[in-house]
Design a protein around this nucleic acid. Structure first.
Lengths: 191, 191, 191, 191
DNA sequence: TATGAATGAGAATTCATTCAT
DNA sequence: GATGAATGAATTCTCATTCAT
């Protein structure tokens, strides 16, 4: 009956917030942003509608929250690159892309839809563009180390290839030859 | 005195139908299928809400109408391939992709979003998948003629690369180095 | 190519008008007044929407037209009574009610719905009430001739019994024991 | 500080639900199912359009809700029959019919219209038929106890007579000789 | 912090009716 | 007389958001 300490409160808050974000990501990816209702998300998360509005001031805020969560995850992954040789880094980028495509297709669908659809806030739009450019920069660095003639364009092309695989996979689902595509891409870049 | 001739009616119908389709394509591409309301489309087309339903029995029917219109356009383009050598065909595929990307980005945005968006009917979904697979088959044929080791996977990879460029271009807009990408792709395939 | 004579025109008009009325009666009875659209009626009648409005200035006018048509039919039937003995008249009333119930259930449904539903114009309402009262008067006359103690109430009761059978038949459809009900009613009134 | 107790919520819900049901019954009876709009019902109930959909998932669900409410009321009345002699039961059936006709004409109008109207779902239609048949069975039991020659048909005839009175009363309103009809019916069945 | 009843704006869709031809 | 394209108001229904408790 004693009041929770503020630490416990904080932890509880963070956990609920994360739960909402995950449920919402799932819902947005499955049904689309417009078609996934706040009621549905709250129900799926097992909380009341009103409570969601304690954590996110509106639906768009929730969208941004998801985006930030995903961006944070990507950041975390970068540490895995440290100390690797360039070819290994490139191979790792391929691996990671295909992994995420297989394990979290909803997340990929969400991000891709976000990137294309203009129903999204300008604010979020800029986040997305920035993210995409950062990715390109990273690839560019690698291609420079690998002494490709035109690292920047190679980076764009490499990114495009991976994006295109993702697109095809999202559109065709299980029919898409994911594994074989990984092989051919690795071999195309001599990895 | 006399009723309109059926010819006049037919012409009127065709014209209004086309107007609605074009406005709707624009609207769906700009705002997304779920967020572009029938009211908005009607207003943009300068007609009454009710009239749209005279031409398309519901929103999904309108979506299908657009899809068929675009598919029809694509069919027309195929005749340009006749009698070309394989390398020329491949170059033409690249050219066409980049052309359409520059001249009709809305159309590309629409088709891409359609392929990803879960808000779309299974019916249309299957059309889209079929369309995508047809494309792959065409590329595959070319790579076979060019005696690539694995024509099918090469076709997938080629398609992915072009799709990825489209995706990047849609996301980054004018910042995307479209022209240079065309060059690097052409050179990658020795065209 | 000579213009139709006004007689021919007149005949044509009358025929088309009748066609519309019959189709509309069917439609109203099947779907209900509110749910049977003018478009549907026009299509069923094989004419254009616009043309129906040449014959009936609006939907309610069409409703009134049907009512008048049905009232006219009832009038025609009355001549069959002439010169009959009271018991025969009563038996005839029963026969006619059951006949119409079997052969034109739609018509009965329509009139019954009209009598109950207040979404109907006051104007039409009064017609219906008048019609019902006329019926009662006729029955009352018969019961007076048959020397029943209270001809007026007997008339109401007799009408109620027939109405109730109609109601049950409309509600239960083929499950309703129509034939047996005719027998028991006839025997109840010693006919 | 604390959320409403579930008891408070429950009470509130029950009250609002009942309000909507009563207003809707009134509206459907007055205007007919198709013509009484959800907007109208909400306005009459003094609540927002949206709230009705919080309680009933659609218009038909509301209709079913009313039907169940009325069926529930009827159930309650049955206990009054216990331990009565057959003649008393029959008299009670007449009494109850006339009572309800005088005190709740809207309810009768609603149920009668429902039985006839084609705008009603098959689902509800079956409920109605079942209800009607149950009634007949009850009457049949009584006539069997009273040793009538053909209890089943007598039950149908008795039901038809009461239904017919209701119909006449609904159509003619205050002009209908309700009280006298009760007397003549009671005397016809020696009650 | 937590609930869910309540709101109101807006979406899809239908339909009686008009009118240029 | 005849057509059906066109209109616009009304209808059913959804949903983001607020708020009393």
């Amino acid at each position: 009956m004693s009041p929770r300490t503020s630490q416990q409160n904080e932890a509880q808050r963070a956990q609920t917030r994360k739960l909402i974000l995950e449920v919402a990501l799932q819902a947005f990816a499955e049904k689309g942003y417009a078609s996934a209702s706040m009621s549905y998300i709250a129900k799926e998360a097992g909380i009341s509608k009103g409570l969601s509005y304690h954590y996110f001031k509106n639906k768009e805020d929730l969208l941004i929250g998801i985006f930030e969560m995903l961006a944070g995850m990507a950041d975390g992954l970068e540490s895995a690159w440290e100390g690797k040789r360039p070819a290994e880094k490139l191979a790792l980028a391929v691996e990671m892309t295909f992994n995420i495509l297989q394990e979290q297709p909803q997340m990929v669908r969400f991000m891709t839809a976000l990137a294309i659809q203009p129903e999204v806030t300008d604010n979020l739009k800029q986040h997305i563009e920035a993210q995409k450019l950062i990715n390109i920069k990273v690839y560019q660095e690698i291609f420079k180390e690998l002494e490709y003639a035109n690292p920047e364009l190679e980076a764009y092309a490499f990114g495009a290839l991976l994006d295109g695989v993702a697109l095809g996979c999202l559109a065709l689902g299980a029919d898409y030859p994911l594994d074989k595509m990984k092989q051919i891409i690795l071999s195309k870049y001599h990895l």
